[in-house]
Amino acid sequence: MMPLWRHARVIAAVCCLGAVAVSCNPQTSAKPNPPADAVVQTKADSKSLERAARRAYDGAPPVIPHGNLGASCVACHSAKGIQFGEMGFAPPMPHETSPGKGPGKFARCTQCHVFKETDEVFVENSFAGLQQDLRRGSRQNPLAPPVMPHPVFMRENCAACHTGPAAREEIRCTHPERGRCNQCHVAPVTQTEF
């Protein structure tokens, strides 16, 4: 029951990608894709560790890494984010911020993102979560744009993580000025059939 528009978008993007690939480089189009598990694992740098420490698993909403500032979250986590000098960068949000007159479904940030009031735990827990997938998206041919290696639901704003000060080296976009990412990069269909 995936919304129709999303199907349409994926299909359109696939067609477009196919057409580009065929016209540019017809002889390589039959080549197999790089294996899906061609994972580029970087060393556990501070940024990776910091990111992991804020999440139960990759895909979980991060806990809020600062105290309650008593202000609206979007005041700082705005469309472009804000640099607070040496204190760090308040990145924009990867999901939509409900434009319009009313609050919208993502209005209540603390529904998913919670503050951390203590370091204490109630009982130790042995849960081991999925780590971030730093694989580069697979390409149809060496010149083709990679497909997105992660689902895009609630990560529609690619710029939040792939551009700006919050973007890590490994996933930083080389051409942010192009704007419409899904013109060339298609998202995996994550809908599982059960």
Binding site: V39, A52, S126, L130, Q131, D133, R135
Partner: peptide, 11 residues
Amino acid sequence: IAATQAALTPE
């Protein structure tokens, strides 16, 4: 935490 997490892809 990182040591307990496995580097796997969602697929």
